[in-house]
């Protein structure tokens, strides 16, 4: 069997200490495809590429079986707060 959503979450939790995390299994059950949204202080001062590299590194083991990993968001708590606020002021977006 492939990787579970819980495995992905626990690896990301232990390595990136996120304040918010959302993992979606988009594989339809085979555990090979995930969408990740993650908010962590560790992203502070890092470019997007670096942030994605951190996520990839945290999931190094899992990546052997994951075929598709989409990091929808890799933001700092501050950026996350702004995103939440702009979403609230513009619910249609």
């Amino acid at each position: 069997m492939g990787v579970t959503k819980e495995q992905v979450e626990s690896s990301l939790n232990s390595k990136l200490n996120p304040s918010h995390i959302e993992v979606l299994d988009t594989s339809g059950g085979c555990g090979a495809s995930f969408v990740v949204e993650i908010v962590s202080e560790q992203f502070e001062g890092k470019r997007l590429l670096e942030r994605h590299r951190m996520v990839n590194a945290a999931l190094e083991e899992e990546m052997k079986e994951i075929h598709a990993l989409s990091v929808k968001k890799a933001v700092t708590p501050e950026q996350w707060k702004k995103l939440q606020e702009s979403n609230q002021s513009n619910p249609a977006a």
Partner: peptide, 12 residues
Amino acid sequence: EFIGGSDIILNM
């Protein structure tokens, strides 16, 4: 320069 994958190019 290595830019990244599809998530990054879409974001950029």
